[in-house]
Amino acid sequence: MNGPIDGLLRTLDLVDTGARTHEDIFTGPSQWAPLGRVFGGQVLAQSLVAAQRTLPDDRAVHSMHGYFLRPGDIEQPITFSVERIHDGRSFSTRRTQAYQNGLPILSMLCSFQTEDEGLDHQMPMPDGIPDPETLPTTAELLAGVDHPTAAYWSNGRPFDVRHLPSSIYLEVDGERVERQAVWMRAIGEIGDDQKLHRAALAYASDYSILEPVLRRHGIPWSTRGMKIASLDHAMWWHRDVKVDDWLLFVQESPSASGGRGLSLGRIYSREGVLVASVAQEGMVRVPDPAAFD
């Protein structure tokens, strides 16, 4: 099994430390990440896994809403407290709080549903999208860049991420537009557990969702003095998903103001099936905002 994928699966394999009076408690490790801060997608995925552990297999997550409260420390494990808010005939609700050193770093509400029949429609996948095999990998784009973050993005992530029209790692080419798309796929097999695939999708959904905000203003990730952090994250799963097949993540930013940017996204299978939708607001601060207008 590939190293980064093996690491992701170990990270999501939480330890059940026992139920208390009003909550279930789990613990999980922190992955290495640049700048010493836990990757937000990791905490989202682990929090979802913790909630899934308190439910029968016939209830799948269909939505979650999380707030990032504090940066996580990669040197510390994370404790997850799950409160069983509601269990109805078709829907269940859970609240997960992620803690380090006794302080919450993430608070999440998520909802689960039994399989049901109903109306069915979706927005179509955009036309004219190049195949992922025709696009450069992150490792190819960052070849020769001697920096720990570049090395992590190139070879340390469990997902292959390929941008279109282009990446914004080192520079922003082309028009300054508030939209983009990425192809992404786990770089190893995940297995058949749909709960794990949905958690892994939550993990990967945090990679590039704020990039349309940066692209609109011509700001690459390499900008000195830039500070960017996820504030909240919402996600809806519409249909089953396989993260070890190629997925198209179509993204756009309707607004940025007050040091914050909002991005929306839709995730499609390669066959054009809409599997999930995402929304995230993030803090985006640059040394001289007027220079990017």
Rank of each mutant, 00 (worst) to 15 (best):
74 I>N: 08
134 T>F: 03
23 E>W: 09
258 G>Q: 02
216 R>E: 13
131 D>T: 15
32 W>A: 14
143 A>D: 15
203 Y>L: 04
237 W>A: 00
192 D>C: 06
125 M>P: 05
195 K>A: 13
1 M>F: 10
292 F>S: 13
282 G>D: 06
3 G>M: 11
199 A>S: 14
124 P>K: 03
236 W>P: 00
151 A>T: 09
62 H>C: 03
172 V>C: 10
238 H>D: 02
167 S>R: 03
142 L>R: 06
205 S>M: 09
247 L>R: 02
234 A>I: 04
138 T>Y: 01
252 E>K: 02
208 S>L: 13
244 D>E: 09
1 M>R: 14
105 I>N: 03
12 L>G: 02
291 A>W: 08
74 I>Q: 13
52 Q>C: 06
2 N>E: 11
225 G>Y: 10
285 R>Q: 12
233 H>M: 04
48 L>R: 04
220 P>A: 05
269 S>E: 11
255 S>Y: 07
280 Q>I: 11
212 P>H: 10
107 S>L: 12
166 S>N: 13
256 A>Q: 14
293 D>N: 13
63 S>G: 11
48 L>A: 04
234 A>L: 01
78 I>P: 01
115 E>R: 13
139 A>W: 02
168 I>N: 09
255 S>D: 05
205 S>L: 08
113 Q>D: 01
46 Q>V: 02
215 R>Y: 12
270 R>A: 15
288 D>C: 00
207 Y>M: 13
260 R>C: 11
